[in-house]
Amino acid sequence: MENPILITENLKAYYGNHLVLKDINLEIPRLNITAIMGPSGCGKTTLLRCFNRLHELSPGGRIEGQIWLGDTDILSLDPIMVRRRIGMVFQRPNPFPTMSIYDNVIAGYKLNGMKLSRVEADEIVERALRGAALWDEVKDILHRRGTFLSGGQQQRLCIARALAMNPEVILLDEPTSALDPKATAHIEELLISLKSRVTIIIVTHNIGQAGRIADYTAFLYLGELVEFGPTERLFTAPKDRRTEEYLSGKFG
């Protein structure tokens, strides 16, 4: 594969003594959407949380192996530096309840104590909100609390919050599972429009969603990477029997 942005080598993840990811070797292509699929409990969320080292914060969470971001192994970096380069959007929209919409977008700067001039801040907020296709809806209420927005808007606010830090990669953990179909479609369009700017990795248990938006798809089963390839190929001609069974709805 040409110019991958993230490469995992023999990645293992544990909860205490329980091995949840077994020797994952994966190359995530740059400026594409990669979907991670699989039945619940297969470790897809854990894999995602390895990329920004959030997994280590779970009780008993431990990672072994290598994850290369460019030519540095992120497991040797300070997790804080990793997380500033790799953004994340969660399953349930989680804007900061004590902050306004405006402050939510630049939360990454504010909470890290980075000083921004008024002009810089305004620019970052507008660019991030436009990027998340939320600007037109909220430009007049920027100083109201983010929690007054609808679920779909809150989720786009969270995407804007991640975008504002100019990350190289954005991780999304089933970002539409708490949303209605209309808001879901909106987010999916948004992700496609974003992939020219940033690499997107999305965990989903919705096969249709992976088919609609992902360029590449990885299929995980019981902590193993079963199959990885271009979405079209994987959906039409799966090489592994388990992938085929999953896609045809036999489990999951």
Binding site: N52, L54, G87, F90, F96, P97, L111, N112, C158, A162
Partner: peptide, 10 residues
């Protein structure tokens, strides 16, 4: 909520 902040590198 805590994870949201941590994921921003805070």
């Amino acid at each position: 909520l805590k994870e949201a902040a941590l994921a921003l590198g805070v």
